[in-house]
């Protein structure tokens, strides 16, 4: 009843408080020092925003991205890095079927806040340009349009652990014949409301933003890539299972290996990137494998109010991907 193809991580992409691209994330985390943070706009809460890119982003010339939210910019940059130019061209030509899975915690909050502010001021003058950009699946739609992908594009929402649920869904898509690859993107953007909201739960919270992307492909010959070995069951917080209990249970599902990437591995340096945090953990873990810093690595994550989940990635034999 089952086949055993390797699920290969065929591409990685990241935008984080450490900068644009996987190398920036790698260097930022290697330094082991918290990045500088700034006060929230109303002097409540602290945040580590994504720095401005060194050069204008070429993809922003695409007609659909002209007015897009920051979260779409981050997601697009991370996705293009993960997909690479060759595949991007094949997707446009219809020669590569790409599924897109997008995960969020908060969504397009900047435009939502702006639009609702206009509604409260005078709904008859609220901008029809802003409203569509507030919808949860707007970034996935923009990304699909920019890549020219007409295959399935799903947006999943939930707490920050949702990302690995999306990876699991991607695996089920890859189990069929409809997709050459599935891009799984976790992204988030900062705004004053979510910055202040974080302080309601943790006085010294430092929130952040960005995007992480993994491109998954089904590949029988996986040499030189990282592969997914295991995804734990999703441990929903319910029936007496607390967040701590869920994390303890998670460890029983993923036996110890060379190294683990937990939230504590990234958050003190980058800040809590909310819906992007687990995606960045996964990208970092796969990057460590490809940098030959370990052979096997666990990623563990406990979301804020819904679930805990983890995964084990491993490096297969062969040359590391050219970076």
């Amino acid at each position: 009843m089952t086949s055993t193809p390797s699920i290969v991580i065929a591409g990685l992409g990241a935008v984080s408080a450490a900068g644009w691209g996987v190398p920036a994330l790698r260097e930022g985390l290697r330094a082991h020092a918290p990045l500088s943070c700034v006060e929230g706009p109303r002097q409540r809460g602290r945040m580590r925003p994504v720095p401005k890119p060194d050069a204008p982003l070429a993809f922003m010339r695409h007609v659909r991205l002209r007015r897009c939210s920051p979260v779409t910019r981050y997601a697009t940059a991370a996705s293009l890095e993960a997909v690479g130019e060759e595949r991007a061209a094949a997707i446009k030509e219809g020669e590569y079927q790409l599924g897109i899975l997008f995960t969020f915690m908060n969504g397009c909050v900047n435009y939502s806040n702006r639009f609702y502010g206009e509604v409260l001021a005078d709904p008859s003058l609220a901008s029809p340009i802003l409203f569509p950009e507030t919808v949860f699946n707007a970034p996935a739609s923009h990304l699909a349009a920019m890549l020219g992908s007409r295959a399935t594009a799903f947006t999943l929402v939930g707490d920050s652990a949702q990302y690995l649920g999306a990876v699991e869904l991607a695996l089920s898509w890859l189990g069929g014949d409809g997709y050459d690859g599935v891009l799984v993107v976790g992204a988030e953007e900062l705004d004053w409301l979510s910055t202040e909201a974080a302080t309601l739960f943790q006085r010294n919270a430092v929130v952040s933003e960005g995007a992480g992307a993994l491109l998954l492909e089904k590949n029988g010959e996986a040499a030189g890539h990282s592969v997914i070995e295991r995804i734990s069951p999703t441990l929903t917080y319910h029936r007496g299972r607390s967040r701590c209990q869920a994390m303890a249970d998670l460890r029983t599902h993923l036996s110890p290996v060379d190294r683990s990437v937990c939230q504590d591995s990234l958050t003190p340096i980058l800040g809590d990137a909310m819906g992007a945090s687990l995606a960045l953990q996964c990208v970092h873990a796969c990057d460590l494998l490809e940098q030959r810093e370990c052979q096997r690595i666990n990623v563990l994550h406990a979301g804020g109010n819904q679930q805990a989940i983890g995964a084990r990635f491993a490096l297969t034999l062969g040359a590391a991907r050219e970076s």
Partner: peptide, 24 residues
């Protein structure tokens, strides 16, 4: 957050399965 409504339903029914929330 959307997971809250679904968690309420799960808690009321005593169901503890994985939750996926699609927002398309």
């Amino acid at each position: 957050q959307p997971q809250s409504q679904v968690l309420h339903l799960c808690q009321a029914l005593g169901v503890a399965g994985p939750i996926r929330i699609v927002s398309n």
